[in-house]
């Protein structure tokens, strides 16, 4: 294992400080709030946003859309991934769908979604079309990667199908999923916000970003970006904690 690919908190902090310093310098030299807002103004906007009585509802609604969309993607990926391994028809049925989702420009699908779906569902759909193919293929590969010699051994020892699914198939799928869970959850969150910016539901981070853009309030946009980064970090941390707890419960290792 190369040590430098592991995150070192000290270097990460230095990098963050350098980025903030560059931001400070740029805002000072450009001296134009619309182009690069000052740190001070961004913080004032951030405080205003947080103090607003609808702030928590906005966060809650965006997170809810993200989670519902993600859980639907995860559920469908697991079910269809397992079914694709047992049925040739389902496997082949999924090939053109995945190829469509991968090759048609995302924007084209989003525009169709804007026509077909209501404002609240579009963000979830946008997250789904980005995240589902990744999760589905991960599930599929998780099953394909299972060592056939282990399955052979289980069959010779007359291990029941239920035990085989519970002890071999499901852990294999989850071991693979675990590796992409954090990145896909983050990607889903970003796509939901993009979907919100386009669909403009009433309470949404994306809608508010779009609103700030309309008023050319760049400090407001920066403030929302900071909030998004904080939420993303909290999400990743919570997920990491959950995985650790599950590991402790001896489910996966």
């Amino acid at each position: 294992m190369r040590n430098f690919i592991l995150i070192d908190k000290k270097y990460s902090m230095i990098s963050k400080l350098i980025i903030i310093f560059i931001w400070f310098l740029l805002s000072k030299f450009i001296n134009n709030e619309v182009m690069i807002p000052t740190i001070r103004n961004t913080l004032i906007n951030l405080m205003d946003i947080v103090k607003d009585k609808s702030f928590l509802i906005i966060i809650r609604m965006t997170l809810l859309r993200g989670f519902i969309g993600f859980l639907i993607s995860l559920f469908l990926a697991i079910v269809l991934g397992i079914l694709s391994n047992t049925s040739k028809f389902i496997y082949n049925f999924m090939v053109p769908i995945l190829s469509f989702l991968k090759s048609v420009p995302t924007m084209a699908i989003i525009i169709l979604a804007l026509i077909w779906l209501n404002n609240n569902k579009v963000p979830m759909f946008v997250g789904f079309i980005m995240v589902f193919p990744i999760l589905y293929e991960t599930v599929l590969n998780g099953i394909l990667d299972i060592d056939y010699k282990i399955i052979d051994m289980a069959k010779l020892y007359k291990v029941s199908k239920t035990t085989l699914i519970k002890d071999i198939y499901i852990p294999s799928v989850f071991i693979n999923l675990k590796a992409v869970l954090t990145s896909t959850l983050g990607l889903n969150f970003k796509m939901v916000i993009a979907g919100e910016a386009l669909a403009q539901p009433k309470y949404a981070i994306g809608s508010n970003l779009q609103l700030q853009k309309l008023y050319l309030n760049t400090p407001g946009v920066f403030a929302w970006i900071i909030i998004i980064l904080l939420i993303k970090n909290i999400l990743e941390y919570s997920l990491g904690l959950l995985i650790k707890l599950l590991k402790k419960a001896k489910q996966w290792k």
Partner: peptide
């Protein structure tokens, strides 16, 4: 068997 065929996560 020739290989141990142990399950890695158990």
């Amino acid at each position: 068997f020739q290989e141990d065929r142990l399950i890695e996560w158990k």
